[in-house]
């Protein structure tokens, strides 16, 4: 159908396949072992060029499927290098560097995400990356990694390194569509965090017994879970609308992506916080999975910033002046 928000058969198939790959290859429990993710299976799946047209070596899907895929990546706390591969390829492609783009998507060239901090660049889960996809003030830059010093990351579980901020850029993009795509996929991963933490909390609330019953029987816990569900649902709906608008090049695309990007961080963080809270003492420990979602939410929230939504034309502006007072 041309006007409905049910997933198509094609969408269901690709997302089910991705979900199965992630469930077996990237279970959240793997984070307890502290090993860096091997993203090769995802590269083989075509995850980093999902919306690239087939003649250009991609899987030929749209930004809609790509966004939904990144929501799954977010759910499984896949290394930020997955986002780096996708966005580095997009920046390279936009700069006319087709071979470099393909190399990023196939992981022959390794990239990691980076953010500017004061005069430094912080590299996020650098592993073996040679290049950094740097989020600048309203732009993305591809930077060669040099003189990077590893540092203890947030909570001693995020992997970070610091390098000087005066590195030259191999390519830059302030293209509106590239930036909107970055915002879309970052938001999608944040949605994944929001949904996973809702599900984790609800599962725990059904299992953990105190005072002779599952804690989910108590209204205070129920209401926390309901709030998580409402927030995740709201963000999920907005993701669908924003992804469709951007994929179709609609006039309100920037507005919808700006709304999404503005709401995504607080939704993911609030849900991740509530998830720790519902897990009680265990949630506070490094042994449970809940803390990883908190940290990932912070990481994703640092990647660029929503476009100022008040500066954009609103799709639902009134068509006539306000009424006279009766």
């Amino acid at each position: 159908m041309s006007f409905d928000l049910n997933r198509s058969e094609d969408q269901r198939q690709i997302l089910d396949a991705a979900g199965a790959l992630l469930a077996t290859g990237f279970p959240v429990a793997r984070l307890r072992e502290g090993r860096p993710d091997d993203l090769a299976p995802l590269a083989e799946f075509g995850a980093f060029s999902l919306s690239v047209p087939e003649p250009e070596g991609g899987a030929g899907f749209t930004l809609v499927e790509e966004a939904l895929l990144h929501a799954l990546l977010g759910r499984h706390l896949v290394s930020p290098r997955a986002l780096a591969a996708t966005l580095a390829a997009a920046v390279a492609r936009r700069a006319g560097m087709a071979d470099l783009a393909a190399a990023f998507a196939g992981l022959e060239r390794q990239a990691c995400l980076a953010v500017a901090s004061g005069g430094d660049i912080l590299l996020l889960d650098p592993a073996n990356a040679e290049m950094a996809l740097l989020f600048e003030d309203r732009g993305l830059a591809l930077v060669e990694i040099a003189h990077a010093q590893p540092e203890a990351g947030l909570g001693r579980s995020l992997a970070v390194a610091r390098m000087p901020g005066d590195a030259g850029a191999v390519a830059r993009s302030d293209d509106a569509r590239v930036l909107a795509t970055a915002d879309l996929l970052v938001s999608a991963q944040l949605l994944g965090v929001a949904e996973a933490t809702r599900d984790l909390a609800v599962a725990y609330a059904g299992l953990r017994q105190q005072f002779g019953k599952p804690i989910g029987a108590f209204q205070a816990i129920k209401h926390h879970c309901a709030n998580m569900a409402i927030a995740a649902e709201m963000l999920s709906a907005q993701l669908d609308i924003a992804a469709i608008a951007l994929a179709d090049g609609r006039p309100d695309a920037e507005f919808q992506v700006a709304a999404l990007r503005r709401l995504a961080p607080r939704t993911a963080l609030a849900n991740a916080r509530a998830c720790v809270q519902i897990h009680g003492g265990i949630g506070f420990s490094a042994e449970a999975d809940a803390h990883h979602f908190v940290k990932q939410a912070h990481l994703l929230s640092r990647l660029g910033e929503a476009r100022p939504i008040l500066d954009l034309p609103a799709p639902m502006a009134p068509l006539r002046p306000a009424h006279e007072r009766t």
Partner: peptide
Amino acid sequence: ADLRAEAAALRAMTYRMVL
């Protein structure tokens, strides 16, 4: 800005309810 974003998301939820 928050209210503008949240109203947009409510509109998205409305679309989803119907579609």
